[in-house]
Amino acid sequence: MQHITPAQLSDWAANMAARRPVLLDVREGWECQTASVSPAGLEFVHMPMQTIPARLDELDKTRPIACLCHHGSRSMQVAAYLTQQGFEVINVAGGIHAWSTQLDPSIPTY
């Protein structure tokens, strides 16, 4: 599984544009309400980690997925699971926290 930084995500999305990449946020609802991103070139999809197995059929295997969470741990687990299920997935290392500290300090940290 590939890990990319938040700063690398826009280039990854641009390279995948023809395949309509997805940013899969696996945090809980309250976390998304606290801090969220919706970068250009990616469709934002929110599925808390525990709901992924039951909602697997909502994801399209033809579309590349970038997984995001708070610090990168949950998204790494989800990315590994999705890879085993036949999806093309990368993990956004450092999660939304890294996004705030590296790219956009207006995004709250928690």
Results as ranks from 00 to 15, higher is better:
96 I>H: 07
15 N>H: 15
9 L>D: 09
66 A>Y: 07
27 R>N: 07
95 G>M: 04
98 A>C: 02
54 A>Q: 15
7 A>H: 14
101 T>P: 03
33 Q>V: 05
98 A>V: 01
6 P>N: 04
54 A>S: 15
34 T>F: 13
46 H>A: 12
5 T>S: 15
54 A>T: 13
105 P>N: 00
9 L>G: 10
91 N>H: 00
64 P>D: 09
38 S>Q: 15
76 M>T: 12
32 C>N: 15
106 S>C: 00
29 G>K: 05
84 Q>G: 14
78 V>Q: 02
28 E>I: 04
88 E>G: 08
14 A>T: 01
27 R>W: 03
93 A>K: 09
98 A>Q: 09
22 V>Q: 03
83 T>E: 13
22 V>G: 07
95 G>A: 06
73 S>T: 13
19 R>Y: 09
88 E>S: 13
75 S>I: 08
8 Q>I: 05
77 Q>W: 00
97 H>S: 12
6 P>H: 01
52 I>M: 06
29 G>H: 07
109 T>V: 08
82 L>S: 10
89 V>P: 12
59 L>S: 01
14 A>V: 01
10 S>C: 02
91 N>L: 00
81 Y>G: 00
93 A>P: 08
95 G>I: 02
22 V>Y: 04
67 C>K: 10
34 T>M: 13
98 A>G: 02
75 S>P: 12
65 I>W: 13
12 W>M: 04
109 T>Q: 07
50 Q>C: 14
29 G>C: 01
34 T>I: 07
47 M>W: 14
106 S>D: 05
84 Q>T: 11
106 S>W: 00
80 A>G: 14
56 L>M: 13
91 N>M: 00
84 Q>E: 14
57 D>K: 11
97 H>Q: 11
46 H>C: 08
108 P>N: 00
26 V>C: 04
51 T>S: 14
35 A>N: 08
90 I>L: 10
64 P>R: 05
82 L>R: 09
6 P>W: 00
18 A>V: 12
52 I>S: 10
77 Q>P: 01
41 G>C: 05
82 L>N: 08
46 H>G: 10
44 F>M: 12
98 A>K: 10
17 A>M: 09
60 D>W: 04
8 Q>W: 08
110 Y>N: 01
80 A>Q: 15
15 N>S: 15
64 P>I: 06
75 S>W: 06
48 P>C: 04
16 M>H: 13
43 E>H: 10
62 T>W: 03
